[in-house]
Amino acid sequence: MFKALGKQIKIIWTQLVSLWLVFLHLFNKADTVEYPDVMPYMFPRWRGRIILTRDPDGEERCVACNLCAVACPVDCISLQKTEDETGRWYPEFFRINFSRCIMCGFCEEACPTHAIQLTPDFEMAEYVRQDMVWEKEHMLINGTGKYHDYNFYNVAGKAIGGKGKGEAQNELPPVDRKSLLP
């Protein structure tokens, strides 16, 4: 009987303590950052708006390999490969449906050329959902983004305009197929 009573008193006491402790929070400073008035600091690796970058020569980095599209868990990236007259691959169109995008950054991880990058910009809301479908011209920037020196075609074996066979990094000049010399 007394034990049960004691238990009930303890229950009520703990509730009262809770009430008191929560009441004290009334005098704490709020943690809220008042976003539109006060801009929060966005970290450089924040996964926000997606951009397409250019390599140090100013050419489009994207080679339309489709790896971002296949890595995308919501399948919101679609593109079509085409190539210029020198054999350089680039996307004919590159479309991201941002109304589906979950900003997971898998596309950036999958990209073998550092073309697709996520930026700290997160202010992408639109009133019309159709406006959230972005094409290449909306995403392509005139810079290298986070990776300044990487140039995919300088390490790839494929010849493109301005870079012939054997002219990439760590390559020997093309072999003479008519020679049998060692």
């Binding site: 489709n66 296949v70 399948d75 919101c76 679609s78």
Partner: peptide
Amino acid sequence: HRYSGRTSMRANINVH
């Protein structure tokens, strides 16, 4: 099963 771009390939015509 890894078909990509399902929610994007027609999005330029209609996002739905």
